[in-house]
């Protein structure tokens, strides 16, 4: 408890201004980074030998706002979860179930990842789980069959590790991973939330962030799912997902700019994360950038591995 109290105390100090504000803000898109990884099937069936479906589609959402269109490359691999929730390093290196999907692939521009904003979705990557080695299949099968029935029901996880970097400079980049839960066929599989639309306080889809302040809300077409969870004794209980949205915005974010008309900024949100149904207050910028647009990205997660996102661009560029 002493360690936890220290963590909380530091968080409090940060909030009340007892630490300096020199660290970058999580919600501000500036450097090369992965915002989200979307998989078409966050949970799949497994009968002890075969995954169904066995081919998945992974769509990365990234940002390289100030990269000026530099050449980027990526790699993708997957493996059995090494026990990240128990403190294992989140990587597949050295994992006997490692399967390489792509290495040194060039990142191509897309309709949304393009000049001048370079913040958007990359082309989807096909992941064929059947391409794993015999050893990997054997280890995955062994792990699953040696798990308890509740663990098989609730699911184990594969991790897909995606690394994007500046071509020729692998130290400049970002790494992200996405879990794919595999569980017994008896269980109804988790689906991604869908239909994320960001609206203003009048119920209208937002169109621009420059003119005045206003409330922003989100309203997924598909509400939170209800699902079954089996406890260690084999008892089933019905739970409901918790949908949480994270709000990202390009550009510098300086709270002092709210009253300084000479500042160039993309605006300021009240909160980094909001729960389903909650509003997030937005303060419009005083002076907007002219050499690029402003990109708002909202990612909603269901805390079970499913996610969806919405992307809005205002001003210049796609």
């Amino acid at each position: 408890m002493d360690h936890l109290k220290t963590l909380l105390f530091v968080a409090l100090l940060s909030q009340v201004g007892c630490t300096s504000k020199s660290l970058p803000e999580y919600r501000v898109l500036q450097s090369l980074r992965v915002i989200s990884l979307h998989i078409d099937s966050p949970e799949i069936n497994y009968d002890g030998t075969t995954f169904t479906p066995s081919t998945l589609s992974l769509t990365p959402l990234i940002s390289d706002l100030y990269g000026s269109g530099r050449s980027l490359s990526y790699s993708l691999q997957w493996c059995l979860d090494p026990g990240i929730s128990l403190g294992a390093t989140p990587q597949c290196t050295g994992n006997p179930t490692l399967t390489q999907v792509a290495t040194g692939q060039t990142v191509s521009t897309t309709a949304t990842f393009a000049s001048p904003n370079y913040t958007g979705y990359l082309s989807s990557i096909s992941v064929n789980l059947s391409a794993a080695s015999t050893t990997a299949f054997s280890l995955i099968s062994e792990k699953f069959l040696n798990s308890s029935l509740p663990e098989q029901y609730d699911g184990l996880a594969l991790i897909l590790v995606f690394n994007v970097y500046v071509t020729g400079s692998p130290s400049i980049g970002d790494t992200a991973f996405k879990r794919v839960v595999f569980s017994t066929t008896a269980k109804t599989k988790n689906a991604n939330p869908t239909g994320l639309v960001v609206q203003d306080g009048t119920g209208t889809t937002i169109s621009d962030l420059v003119n005045g302040a206003g409330y922003l809300a989100y309203l997924p077409t598909t509400a939170a799912e209800t699902y079954s969870w089996m406890d260690s004794l084999g008892n089933l209980s019905s739970l409901t997902e918790t949908l949480v949205s994270t709000w990202f915005l390009t550009g510098p974010e300086d709270p002092t700019c709210a009253n300084d008309t000479s500042c160039t900024t993309d605006g300021l949100f009240g909160a980094t994360r909001t729960n389903y149904g909650s509003y997030n207050y937005f303060t419009a910028p005083n002076t907007i950038p002219t050499n690029r647009g402003r990109v708002l990205v909202v990612v909603t997660r269901d805390n079970r591995g499913g996610n969806t996102s919405a992307r809005y661009v205002f001003g210049t560029g796609p």
Partner: peptide, 16 residues
């Protein structure tokens, strides 16, 4: 020495 974004939990995990 590095980190990885846990896209399911929306947080970076340090690699020591």
């Amino acid at each position: 020495v590095g980190s990885a974004l846990d896209t399911d939990h929306d947080v970076y995990i340090p690699i020591n």
